[in-house]
Design a protein around this nucleic acid. Structure first.
Length: 646
RNA sequence: GCCAACGUAGCUCAGUCGGUAGAGCAACUGAUUCGUAAUCAGUAGGUCAGGAGUUCGAUUCUCCUCGUUGGCUCCA
């Protein structure tokens, strides 16, 4: 038999007989112990089963259970097992759609006339347990597309037939385990007994192929791990994450509320939340001033005609609140700030000498969002964007984008964010502007990102119709990604509003516009911030930085004096001078996550000091009132500058 | 908008297989003056999300509406 060579990860080449299976090859390459932990292999760039036959030279690497790919394979196999269980329990009236692994588990989509109920989860899990106990092997077979179509057609599985119809290859692979057969690329576990720890978690609707015009399917979500401990840890982590949920903390810390009486998706900023917002805004304004921006304010409504000119009615109309009639003229709430900034641009003739013109605004916009899309502070119907529009020439683009990124990352960093996903979205199918402009703008965005040393992913065709964009997403505690920053080049609005400037040559030219928002929406950013800090905000952002508490009424006068003095020194301080035990007051302050508790008893009155307790339970040495004020001032300064945040 | 679940006092939750509701915390009143995560006692507080239907009787069953949650779609 002919020999072929496998190139290992180490670079070493190993000779094996042509036509051996992966499992056989592994015997030559790994210890028994390692082999027991191997569930699949990588041949060149392809993941394959242990039973796969090796026909030619290839790069070769085992896939161990404890690897990201291993976990994904486990979960994909778990999806198959769940589908088998569902078919076994609910019969062939159930149509199966697709069932992939996801970032933290797997799902399978089913079409069934009766809805599943969470009560079914246990039955499904029990059936899955039986399948696991049977240690049924996952068998791969390759068949012609026509055979596969015939097979699924006969089995009454139209979704599979539809999928097959779109596969270009003549042959496809099927996977069988027990009674279940699925169209699948694989690879899978050697057999179902690997599935030791799994759980059916939730049930949700999902459109077939993600298209809201098509059939609504029932999606069962689950997760799986190689051992019970990991599953338990994952479930525990979910519970922990819930404690940081901004909706829960927002209520407990009295930061914001959303009320039925007011309306869904409309945020009420309560005193502490409002104070925090003011701190964010002040910081934002200062940074923009330093970075040579000018501040604007614009109205919340404008004539419908303006939204026609801007194209919003055509392209964004579905997301706008409906018109209101005022003296027989239609007005509409603004979903974006740009046309107002353009109106300001047009107040007089502009010269290239003014460029780049950087105008920013904390502009409150209203967008009609589908009820099902609303989510706490993260997805709302009225929100304030930290918006800016930069008017410039094409040759300014790259430098301007770089400067925006610089300011953007700096601001994110001051708020403690240094982990995010960056996306560059390129030209979509429907677009305005010349190909040349698109090319130029896209490469400017790319160059700026590279110059800034930012890793990014390209989202081909995901740009807005009017220009390419950069998006930066931050993840919430439950791993959901939320877009905050966005930087968009716009060729459209300058055209629609016929913007011009006078160039060096004395002729009229059309400027380019950059739209950008760094925090995106103050509401969403606040939500992410609450979760990021679990409500325990750094001192410079804490709405209440300190709370003073006396031990008995004997210290009332002194406590009042300290309170007033610190307040005058600019410390955000509260007082708790109630006739309660110290323990009780500390507990309350602790639960409010106040950074500093100032305790005054007879000793402190005597020495004219305060004892400082931190929210982590530690005590600082007693200090004078002035020393404490200085401590806060220092922390404010450090926080604003972003020092200490990596 | 679509699929599913849920909605009981300010908050967290119990409860009624149909006979108009209960706890803890918070609030208020009083006592207590007690040094690092809950002092004790008392008082008050609910058209059980809203509407309609079935019923002698609905918070409980049915339907509709509103809202929330988890997804899908969409997005800052």
């Amino acid at each position: 038999m002919a020999e072929i060579f496998l190139t290992l990860y180490s670079g070493e080449k190993k000779a094996v007989a042509q036509g051996v299976t992966v499992a056989e090859a592994l015997k030559e390459l790994l210890s028994n112990k390692e082999r027991k932990q191997t569930i699949a292999a990588r041949l060149d760039d392809r993941l394959v089963d242990l039973s796969a036959v090796i026909e030619a030279d290839a790069r070769f690497a085992p896939i161990f259970a404890e690897s990201p790919e291993g976990l994904e394979i486990l979960r994909h196999s778990a999806a198959h097992v769940m589908a088998e269980a569902v078919l076994a329990l609910f019969g062939n009236e159930v149509k199966v759609a697709i069932g992939p692994a996801t970032a933290d588990g797997f799902y399978y989509d089913f079409d069934r006339s009766e809805p599943f109920s969470p009560d079914d989860f246990e039955r499904i899990e029990a059936k899955m347990q039986e399948i696991v106990a049977a240690a049924a092997p996952f068998r791969r077979e390759t068949v012609s597309k026509a055979e596969a179509i015939a097979l699924f057609d006969k089995a009454g599985q139209p979704y599979k037939v539809e999928l097959l119809g779109e596969i270009a290859d003549d042959t496809v692979s099927l996977y069988r385990q027990g009674e279940f057969v699925d169209l699948c690329r694989g690879p899978h576990l050697p057999d179902t007994s690997w599935l030791k720890a799994f759980k059916v978690i939730k049930l949700a609707g999902a459109y077939w192929r993600g298209d809201e015009k098509r059939q609504m399917l029932q999606r069962l979500y689950g997760t799986a791990f190689f051992d019970a401990k990991a599953l338990k840890a994952y479930l525990h982590q979910l519970e922990e994450a819930k404690k940081r949920d901004h909706r829960k903390l927002g209520k407990e810390l009295e930061l914001f509320s959303i009320q039925e009486q007011v309306g869904p998706g409309l945020i009420l900023w309560q005193p502490k939340g409002a104070l925090l917002r003011k701190l964010i805004e002040d910081h934002w304004r200062e940074e923009h001033y330093r970075n040579d921006y000018e501040l604007l304010f614009t109205p919340h409504i404008a004539k419908r005609d303006m939204w026609k000119t801007s194209g919003h009615l055509d392209f964004y109309g579905e997301n706008m609140f409906s018109a209101m009639e005022i003296e027989e003229v239609s007005y509409q709430l603004k979903p974006m700030n740009c046309p107002f900034h353009i109106a300001i641009y047009k107040t007089r003739k502009r010269s290239y000498r003014e460029f780049p013109l950087r105008w920013c605004e904390l502009g409150t916009v209203y967008r009609f969002e589908k009820t099902g899309a609303l989510h706490g502070l993260m997805r709302v119907r009225g929100f304030t964007q930290d918006d800016a529009h930069i008017f410039c020439r094409p040759d300014h683009l790259e430098e301007e984008i770089f400067n925006i990124l610089d300011l953007n990352l700096h601001i994110l960093k001051t708020f403690g964010f240094s982990q995010y996903d960056v996306y560059l979205s390129t030209r979509p199918e429907k677009y305005v502007g010349s190909d040349e402009h698109w090319e130029q703008a896209t490469s400017a965005l790319k160059l700026a990102l590279e110059k800034k040393g930012l890793a990014f992913e390209v989202d081909p065709g995901e740009g807005v119709f009017y220009g390419p964009k950069i998006d930066i997403k931050i993840r919430d505690v439950l791993g959901r990604a939320w877009q905050c920053s966005t930087i968009q080049v716009d060729f459209n609005l300058p055209e629609r509003f016929e913007l011009t400037y006078t160039g060096e040559d004395g002729k009229e030219h059309q400027p380019i516009m950059i739209h950008r928002a760094l925090m995106g929406s103050l509401e969403r950013f606040f939500g992410v911030l609450i979760e990021h800090y679990a409500g325990a905000f750094p001192v410079w952002l804490a709405p209440i930085q300190a709370r003073i508490m006396n031990i008995t009424d004997a210290q009332l006068a002194y406590a009042e004096e300290v309170y007033l003095e610190l307040r005058r020194a600019g410390v955000r301080i509260e007082k708790d001078l109630r006739n309660e035990k110290l323990n009780y007051k500390i507990r309350e302050a602790q639960m409010q996550k106040i950074p500093y508790m100032l305790i005054v008893g007879d000793k402190e009155v005597e020495s004219r000091q305060v004892t400082v307790r931190l929210r982590d339970g530690q005590n600082l040495p007693a200090m004078s009132i002035a020393e404490f004020a200085a401590l806060i001032a220092r922390e404010n300064e450090e926080g604003r500058s972003g020092a200490g945040n990596s």
